[in-house]
């Protein structure tokens, strides 16, 4: 058994909130650079170059990449041989978010009651997903999620007879309906199978997979490649002002499902697909 003090969790999450909102991961930066080279539209290229300039300014001047610094989505993969001490783990996670958004000059975008809508003032609570894994380590991913693209995300409870064509149409429909609102070029996270909530969670988790890494399942890999190509033929383009780069990647996760169902979740992320990962 390994003992970890929750203070370590507080400081790690604080730092990761700040890091994710100011520095985009290398895979995302490479993809935007590549997109700027291959975009056919002059307008589109111009926008992609502005996005690269925006990333440089964010890094050099410590201004968040986007003013929507998101709701903090946190994946906690906890080794089953770990024991936490020094307080309740969940309190520590929220405290890390509170400190990160406060000290990092990040926007507080969370309202307490979704109907009454009073801002909580410190961007808590976070959205936390726990999983228990083998070993004695804790893997933390902090993925601040902006809502311009979150609002454009969809769940489709398809019928088994809809098949793979139904899945493709669902993804293309979600992207088309998102259009310029989701700040293209997007990253498209897709969850196929499971239950209603499982497919949504897979779609979210898929967004933090490096976008230059394709699915290990050959069928899913082919689907990712075909969908990316077709999304980029939609013409939506950077900023929705027309072009040949509408998405940077399609990341699909799948899971067994029920004989009666074919759930498909499409979680759309803008070009600021942020995540920081750390192991304790």
């Amino acid at each position: 058994m390994r003992i970890i003090n929750v203070d370590l969790v507080v400081s790690a999450i604080k730092e990761m909130c700040i890091e994710a909102n100011h520095f985009l991961s290398q895979d995302m930066k490479d993809a935007i650079e590549e997109a700027a080279k291959k975009e056919e539209s002059v307008v589109g290229r111009q926008i992609l170059e502005q996005l690269q300039e925006n990333l440089n300014i964010a890094k050099q001047e410590m201004i968040p990449i986007c003013q929507d610094t998101g709701m903090a989505v946190i994946f906690m993969e906890i080794g089953q041989d770990v024991h936490f001490e020094g307080g309740f783990l969940e309190d520590a996670i929220h405290e890390g978010v509170r400190q990160g958004y406060g000290e990092g000059y990040l926007r507080k975008s969370v309202v307490g009651n979704p109907i009454l809508r009073k801002n909580t003032g410190d961007n808590t609570p976070a959205i936390i997903h726990y999983s228990i894994v083998p070993g004695d380590q804790v893997h933390i991913t902090v993925a601040p999620k902006g809502f311009g693209s979150e609002n454009m995300s969809r769940i489709f409870m398809l019928k088994p007879s809809d098949g793979i064509e139904g899945v493709k149409n669902a993804v293309l429909t979600a992207v088309k309906d998102a259009g310029p609102n989701a700040c293209p070029p997007m990253v498209v996270g897709v969850g196929i199978g499971g239950t209603f909530e499982k497919c949504a969670l897979m779609a979210k988790r898929a967004l933090s997979r490096p976008i230059d890494k394709r699915s290990e399942d050959s069928g899913m890999r082919e689907l990712e490649e075909e969908l990316l190509e077709r999304i980029n033929r939609s013409g939506i383009g950077p900023g929705g002002l027309g072009g040949t780069v509408t998405a940077l990647a399609v990341n699909i996760d799948s899971y067994p499902t029920h004989i009666a169902g074919l759930p498909v979740a499409v979680n759309i992320c803008c070009h600021v697909n942020r995540h920081a990962t750390r192991s304790l």
Binding site: S41, G179, R233, G235, I236, G240, G242
Partner: peptide, 25 residues
């Protein structure tokens, strides 16, 4: 409306209704 016309020029995907990008919302 610029969004009505901008995507059409680059739209090569038959299954996407390029006249109605972002229409549903």
């Amino acid at each position: 409306d610029l969004y009505d016309t901008a995507a059409q020029r680059y739209c090569r995907e038959a299954t996407v209704d390029c006249m109605n990008i972002g229409g549903a919302i």
